[in-house]
Computed example of a mutant assay.
Amino acid sequence: MIESTKTKRFQAVVLPHLNSAFNLACWLTHSRQDAEDVVQEAYLRAFKFFDGFHGEDGRAWLLTIVRNTFYNWYQENHSQHRGPLFDEEFHSFEQTGAAALARADDNPEHLLMQKDSERLLQQALGALPLEFREVMVMRELEELSYKQIAAIVGIPIGTVMSRLGRGRRLLAQILAPADRE
């Protein structure tokens, strides 16, 4: 059976960004299961409307759909969602890919300190308000440009920069030792 041109193009332009889509959805939902649902729905929508995509940045287009799908999901489920704001199992050190880096260093003390720092950073990032967390994840973890983030979120570049600055300050406050105050 010969695949359609749309399917081939979709696989080439959108499918390679599955990890980015899942990463963003995980940080937005705080749940692997919910993130899987959001990403699945986002990919269905992306395929359905793929004929209307004429741009070059499939990643930004897909992440826009993931973000919009998340907000639709959140509106439908937020009154039912009473889970923890931070899922320790999901955001564990081993789930981040940093475990591969840690394996390169066999110093137990260094590994423990690195693991603790990673956990604290993930908790702090997860504690940020959603509007700051989403731009921080897109910029710092997904390495998107300000222009791409602005297009995905639907805000001016200046607002992206402002949210990143405020998000970074909030992150620093969260991570600052309590005895410094």
Rank of each mutant, 00 (worst) to 15 (best):
T96A: 08
A98W: 08
I152P: 03
R82P: 01
Q173M: 06
Y74A: 06
V38H: 03
T5D: 08
G126H: 04
D37Q: 06
R59E: 11
V39Q: 01
E142T: 05
L15T: 14
Q122W: 11
T159V: 14
M1L: 13
E3T: 06
S145E: 09
R133F: 04
Q11E: 14
E118Q: 13
P156M: 05
L141W: 07
F70H: 01
Y43G: 06
N77T: 14
R59N: 09
L130Y: 10
Q40N: 11
K115W: 03
S79F: 03
I174M: 01
D34E: 13
P16R: 15
S162T: 07
H81Q: 14
I157C: 03
S20N: 10
L28S: 06
L128C: 09
I155G: 07
I152R: 07
N23Y: 05
L18I: 13
E143V: 13
D57N: 15
A46V: 04
A151N: 04
I149S: 05
E76I: 09
F93C: 09
D37T: 06
D179E: 12
N72L: 04
I174G: 00
L125K: 08
R103K: 11
L101D: 13
D51Y: 02
N77K: 15
M161K: 10
A176D: 00
H54T: 11
M1Q: 11
E140Q: 14
V13P: 06
L171G: 04
I174R: 03
D105W: 00
L164M: 06
Q173T: 05
L112M: 04
H54F: 08
L44C: 04
R45T: 08
A172N: 12
V153G: 02
L85I: 14
Q122C: 12
L128V: 07
K48L: 10
A151K: 06
I65Y: 05
E140R: 14
S4I: 07
D57I: 09
D57S: 11
E134C: 05
L85Y: 13
F50C: 01
A104D: 02
W61G: 09
I149T: 09
Y74N: 07
P129V: 13
V135A: 06
D51E: 09
Q148R: 12
F22Q: 11
L28V: 06
Q114C: 08
E3P: 01
E143T: 15
L175P: 01
L24S: 08
R180F: 12
D179R: 10
R59Q: 13
R168C: 06
G158T: 07
Q148G: 09
C26F: 03
T69N: 01
L171Q: 03
A21W: 04
E76G: 08
P129G: 13
L141P: 02
R168L: 10
P156E: 02
I149F: 05
F90Y: 03
Q95Y: 05
T29S: 12
I2P: 15
E36Q: 12
I155E: 09
L141I: 11
F93D: 04
A21I: 07
G165C: 01
A25Y: 00
D34L: 07
L121V: 10
M138C: 12
G97E: 09
F49L: 05
T64E: 11
M1H: 13
L112S: 10
E134I: 03
E89W: 14
G126A: 12
